[in-house]
Each structure stands twice: as structure tokens, then as C-alpha cells.
Design a protein around this nucleic acid. Structure first.
Lengths: 185, 185, 185, 185
DNA sequence: CATGAATGAGCCTTCATTCAT
DNA sequence: AATGAATGAAGGCTCATTCAT
């Protein structure tokens, strides 16, 4: 039945609209300063509907928090089968591009900040910092020895630090070049 | 007059007790989830008194936020006149020691998260990421060329990333050794 | 036409199912604590359909409230043409049987509690406490003198009090025996 | 210190004012239909203050529910050392007087209605219907045999039934006379 | 300085009811 | 008839802040 599909698409569309609105609002106000009512208004739905799609504000926070992390980028670059510097470039570019957007740039910090309050966020982070770090290390440097993992962490940390406050006289691409050169030496 | 001094010390002592209590409470609950009343109770003072020492919760937040950043460490290591790897070691050790404490570890992320809401926090951060970065670069590598600054940022980012989630099988000292080795190559 | 009958039976069946579900839910949660959505779920119909059968929640409340009173029992025993102690036994047995069911036991109190809010409930109660009391008095004691009516009220009150909290060491039948003996003396 | 006493009296006075207001509002609207804000307004205090004196609406409900039962009357008449018909008269008069007030008359039914939702109310009721019933039986009839307890329950039930809907042509005192005569025969 | 009662704005959430499909 | 998405009005409760004492 066509219309069933249409309805499902509709529902997904509304849900997505709410999430996008939440990302904008959370980004500027923070997860706890942003009232659900404002998100609803930003998404052009009633407050009641927001709670139809998300049982609680926390559920919405979790959804946004998940999207705010760079896990998607790690996943993609690893799936593409990249190796060595190529892998780092893939990740670095993806990362810098994602967090060029001020919305994501703010969100990731809010998310890091609430990690101790939301076990699920903590777990996502654990995944990223341990599992993925290890896999990236293996693919980038051939092993997951401490030194390799230190480098990967350093890589991530540097990217985070860049997006947190991009130095105006160092273009994105240059930064990435230099960073990877330092780490691959 | 002695008693004036004593009173001032008293006042300072209470003020300090409130700040310390606030750090504990903010650390676990976040700046906006933590009610002022809880901080007062934690500091064993009345809610009214808290607002006597700090005109508003925001004022208290700002005080705590300031202390949560590693500026004090940068300042100290720079004042000590250290150079090269020695400077990095000084900073690294100070940093890792400060953020060994879970209270500071949580607080710094909360602080980064609210930077867009509090111009003063933003400014502190700007200071750290631009001014101090540059000065550290000069003292560590002899110049503040882009590559040097990239390294310093990378250094800070790596430390942040370490404290955010210390890998259990890499001791603090080893981590710092490896990190500095990578950067000084 | 058969199918018309079938449909009507269907409609009646659904309506009845909703009422029964409402009785269960109202019984445990009370009229105002019980959300219409829960009743719908309990009746395995959609929320929308519930409001198709009952224009408002109040309408449903009224229907349930009516059934929760022992009017049906009074009616039946009076119609059967019983008299004297026989009438009281008929009512007493019917009453105790109906309110053996915890659902009705709870409901009747909820109903008494909302009598001032719903004129219709108030009226049902008036009927029961005045009209029926009088008729039962006449049939049980031969007149509706004050003393007779006091006895009938006392009879009803005692039954209510029994069901409200049945003493575990006094069986239903014994209780009724003793009660009627006291009143008929 | 005088003013400490004064303050305590003040606090008690406000608390009492809130409870009294709650009794009025709960009485006419029911426990769950009555918004806390209305109670606050009725008590001439802010909504916030209501929740300063009572941690939650439920706490207030419990306080009111407790006062709505006739336990105080039973206690008093028992303590006075009354016996036989005299005890029943004491209880009956106290009861009828208390529930002459429409506020209490409504409240007791609301309270009975929520007994399954609030364990504490249930317990109060258990006390009244079992413990006290037994003690009254012993003092009124010399023993707590089933027949004596049935009479006491019948006594209470009749009083409840009277207040629930006082017959206009039977004065309070006459009703009580007749009731006690029936039971003491 | 110190207390804690008092205020009121605002937030999350629930829920009766409507309506497009 | 039937569904469930959509709405909006409350409601309970929290909390920063003030103020009388």
C-alpha cells in the first residue's frame, strides 16, 4: 500500500525535523538550558507531539548526543578499507568537515560534558576511545602497541582541539597535513 | 589589628569552602543540573549565605570554571623559565596530575561545554588556546611558526584526550614520554 | 437482515468491552487517575474509538458509576415481591455477592467520592437513599416510619462497612444472619 | 528566646493554614481534581511555599486524609473511660457533629476512595476497622464476640450512611437515639 | 554575617480531545 | 467504524533569588 509507506515517511520526516531542531537548540543553549518547548517551536510541532515521538527529553538528548560524536566518520573510513596515512586523512577530513558546522562543534562538547550523567553516552565514548582507537591504530600503523594508540589518541585530541578553536591563520588542510606528518614520522 | 585579619581569613575561608563544595557538586551534576541549595548544604552554609558571597549562581559558575582550566599550570611552568622538552614535561606532568582528580576531569568538560554561554569563559579559553599556545611554542620549539603551534595544540589535545579516558594499560608517565617523543622528533 | 443484528451485537460488544475495561482500570486507579488511553489499551481498542463510543471521559465515568451502585440488586429483590426478613436476605446476599468482587468494592467508593461533582451520580444516590430506602422499609417492616427507615439505612451502612473491610473471622453468611437478627428484633 | 517561639508558632500557623485550605479545596474538588496552585491561592501563599511545607502533593493529601477520618473521636471517647450506651452516644454525637460539616463529609468519602492508592491511608483504616472496633465492642458490650463486633460495625456503617445523606425529616438526635436503641436491645 | 521562609517563573510531562486518513 | 498522530491546556515540582529577622 502506497499510503502506508507515505505515512511512515511522514512520521520519519517529523521525527527527523524534531531531532534537527533539537540539535540547533541544544547546540546554542546546552542540553539542560534548552526547554523542550523551544525545540518544539523550532520544529514547528506542538509540545505534546514532541513527547509523542520521544518519551522524554532524555530520550531526545541521547539521540542528539549520539549523532554529535564522530563515530559515523570512523565507521565510514574503516569500512572503506583505508590504511596508513590515507586512513588518517579520511578521518581527519571527515572530522574537520563535520565540525566545521558550529552546531556539531558545540554539541560534541555538550555531549562530552554529560557523559557521566548518561551511561549510554559513556558507552558510546568508550567504544570510540577504546575499540575504534585500537582498530584505527592497527590499520594506520600496523599494530595496536601503546605507542600507536598514543598516536591515535593524540590525533583525535589534536582534531578536537583544532575544532574547539581553529587558529585563523592556519587553514584546515594545512593543519591536517602537518598533524599527520608529525604523527607518521 | 589582628582580628580584622582573622575576620578576613574567616571570610576567605567560607568563600573558599563554598567554591570547593561547588566544584564537587558541579563536577558530578553539571553546572545547570546542580541546584545552589545543594552546594550550600555541601558547604555547610545556608542558601542565603551562598548568595551573600556570590551575587548569583553564574558568578559562582564563573569562579569554578576559571579554576577548572589548566591555565595555572601553564603560568607556573612558563614562569619557572623552562624550555624545550623540559617545559612540555612540566606542563604535561602538571596537567596529568591536576586532572587525575575526577572532579577537575569532569569540570573541565563542563566548562568547555558552557564556553559559548559565558563570554568570560570564552575569553579564558581564547587566552589559553592562542596567547599561551604561542608562548609555549616559542619556549618549546624556539618559534611560533604554524608547525610549532600545531604541535602545541596537538600536545594539549592529546593530554585532554588522555584524561578524558585514560587507557588502563598505559601508565601516566609512559604516556607522557611517548607523547613528547613523538612531538620532539 | 442478519448482518444488521450482527453489527449491532458487534457494536454492543465493543461498547461493553470498553465499559468492562474501564471498570477494571477505574477500580484500581480511581476515576481521575486513570487515563483514557489506558482504558483503551485494556479494552484493546484505539484511543480514538473509545471517544467514538463515549463522547467524553465523563460519559464513561457516569456509565461505570451507575453500574457500581447496588441499585440493580434493590430493583431485583423488590420486583421479586419479597417481604420481611426474606427481602433483607435477598438484598444482603445480592449485595455481599456483588461486592465480593474487589472491582466493585473499589468502584462504589470512588463513585461515592465523586457524587458532588456529577449531578447524575448524586441523583442516583438520592434515589437509592430515599426512594428505595422507603420502599424497602415498607416491604420489610410494613411501614416507612422513621424507625423503619433508620433500620434500613443501618442495614445498608452495615453492608457497606462489611465490604469495605470484611473481618476475616466472620463469614459472609454469619454476618448477614447476625445483622438481620439485630434489625428484626 | 521569645522570637524563636514566635517563629515556630508562625510556621505552625502557616502550615495549618495550608492544611485548612487544602481541606476546603480537596473537599469540593477531590484529591486529584484539585490543583496545588488553587490550594496555595486559597491559603494565600505562593505555590512554591506550599512545596516548602509539604514535599509533595501526596504528603499534603496524607495529612488531610488522616484528619478526615473519625479516629480522633474514637480515641477521645475511649480515653474518657465511657462504657455501654454512653460510649456509643459519645462516639455517635462526636461523629455526627464532625460530619455535620460538609467539608469533612465530603473528605471522608474521598479518603475512603483513595485507600488502595495510599498504604498509609489503608493502615489508618485498618486500625479503625479492626483495632478500634474491637476495643469499642469490649467497652460497649463487654466482649468482642462476633455479634458484638457486627453491632459496632453496623453502628459505624449507619453513622456513615446517615452523614452521607441525612434524611431531612429525622433530626440528628432522634436518629442516634433510634440507632442505639436498636443496637442495645 | 547568617538563616531559612517566601516568591514566582519556568520546566517536564500527562492527558482529554480532535481530526485527517 | 477505526486508527493514532496532533494539539494545547494544565499540573506538579524545582530552583534562583530576595528579604525579614
Amino acid at each position: 500500500m502506497y499510503w502506508v509507506e507515505a505515512l511512515r515517511r511522514d512520521k520519519e520526516e517529523v521525527r527527523e525535523r524534531i531531532i534537527k531542531a533539537a540539535m540547533r537548540v541544544f547546540s546554542t543553549m546546552g542540553y539542560f538550558q534548552a526547554p523542550a518547548s523551544l525545540i518544539a517551536k523550532e520544529a514547528s510541532v506542538s509540545k505534546g507531539l514532541l513527547f509523542w515521538y520521544f518519551r522524554s527529553k532524555d530520550e531526545l538528548i541521547l539521540e542528539v548526543a549520539k549523532r554529535s560524536l564522530p563515530i559515523d566518520i570512523l565507521k565510514k573510513c574503516l569500512k572503506d578499507g583505508r590504511e596508513g596515512a590515507d586512513l588518517l586523512y579520511c578521518i581527519g577530513r571527515g572530522y574537520l568537515e563535520k565540525y566545521q558546522d558550529i552546531i556539531h562543534r558545540n554539541l560534541i562538547l555538550h555531549t562530552l560534558s554529560i557523559r557521566t550523567l548518561y551511561p549510554q553516552v559513556e558507552e558510546n565514548l568508550r567504544d570510540m576511545c577504546e575499540d575504534y582507537t585500537r582498530r584505527v591504530a592497527v590499520r594506520a600503523f600496523g599494530d595496536d602497541s601503546p605507542i600507536s594508540r598514543v598516536k591515535i589518541r593524540t590525533f583525535f585530541g589534536s582534531l578536537l582541539c583544532y575544532t574547539l578553536r581553529p587558529p585563523k591563520d592556519i587553514p584546515v588542510d594545512d593543519y591536517l597535513d602537518m598533524l599527520i606528518k608529525v604523527l607518521m614520522k
